[in-house]
Design a protein around this nucleic acid. Structure first.
Lengths: 206, 206
DNA sequence: GTTTACCAATCAAACGGTTGTTTGGTGGAG
DNA sequence: CTCCACCAAACAACCGTTTGATTGGTAAAC
């Protein structure tokens, strides 16, 4: 009973929850051990070090995000549809794994430089996915010729910040939130000059 | 020379820099004292506790932001112009006091509950400022009838995230970044249906 | 203009407590 | 009989904070 794999997963889940709620440095090995009802020394049967544990959680977070979003970017949907789905999926993923995503998004500076570089590489990879969609949209003429880099940051900020305030009992589902975000990014806030309303998407172009 | 006030400010500045770079819990009183070339016990001549110091830094951060942005919201400019200026000013403030703003935006959970509530009240106050501009824009018919609350969060995420990546030698000034952000939020990314280009603002409406 | 009193700024040293980690042992299940 | 999962105990290091003494300068008293 409680074979290695499941017990280890319990450890990761407990650690993710504690790290996301109290922060990495404010969480002691004691805290984690208490959650599993074992002594803190026993944790080292499963992990190599506290920081190694943090790294594993963060890597789990980014890779999940990458796996969920990459198919969208690499599909042959039109750029505006890609962007809509990307934003929605990113939001949904945060809502789905809030603890892991919060740790990934919040604890980068708690890693020692070598491990931090690793995670930064993943993050860069993700940023490039987003940026590619923007660039594609501009090339198609679907998007206005904006500053790719800045729009990427604007977009990432919008969706990454979700971990700071999202609650499952907030009235709106993650899908709905993502849809609103996508709508604002594509159409902007201004009324009038544009058609404006949130009319359903027509899978048209090229 | 080095009267109480200036020496104390040195302490606050050093602490803000360390907290923003390494994080609150990863920074020891020793680290701060080293920066001022005194012993760590001597810090308590200026502050009451480490957490009291953190609170002071965070309060400084939010209040600065509030002071810089409130005049814009309470002016009698049209809503779209208010929003443009708000976004730009928020970005500029982060670029102006990156350490204090990073501590404010990153270390909320390092505060004990009573002090955290205080800062949350300030944050709520700021959120309401932003939300008021959105609501106003919708009431004027300047903005589309979007979900106020969600758009507020989208906007805050976009500008708050700036502390994570902004660097003064990044090619663009904070003003320019803020202007791009404002443009995207107002007009959206889509080309075509709208007039589209970043034409200068006409102070028109009602 | 010297003495006296004061006070801000800092040192020196200690306090109990907690930290992450290591080592060697132990019980029980397969 | 083996080996996984955990215990028990210790380790040195560091933590935030307190206390009492010690400077150096400044301002008032004589």
């Amino acid at each position: 009973m409680a074979n290695e794999t499941t017990r280890r997963k319990e450890l990761l889940v407990a650690a993710a929850r504690l790290f996301s709620r109290k922060g990495y440095h404010a969480t002691s090995m004691q805290d984690i051990a208490d959650e599993l009802n074992i002594l803190r020394g026993s944790l080292y049967h499963y992990i190599e070090s506290k920081e190694g544990l943090l790294y594993e959680l963060m890597e789990l977070g980014v890779r999940t995000l990458l796996e969920q979003v990459r198919p969208i970017v690499e599909s042959d949907l039109p750029p505006d549809e890609k962007l809509t789905r990307l934003i929605r999926q990113h939001t949904v993923t945060i809502a789905q794994y809030p603890d892991f995503m919060a740790v990934f998004l919040h604890e980068l500076k708690s890693l020692s430089p070598p491990r931090r570089e690793q995670i930064l590489a993943y993050r860069k990879e993700y940023e490039n996915l987003v940026r590619r969609v923007i660039a594609e949209g501009i090339a198609w003429g679907t998007f206005r010729p904006v500053n790719e880099r800045m729009v990427t940051f604007a977009l990432l900020g919008m969706v990454n910040w979700v971990y700071q305030w999202y609650s499952p009992d907030g009235g709106l589902s993650a899908e709905e939130i993502g849809a609103i975000f996508g709508d604002v990014v594509l159409h902007g806030l201004l009324a009038g000059e544009c058609a404006g309303e949130v009319r359903p998407h027509e899978p048209s172009p090229q």
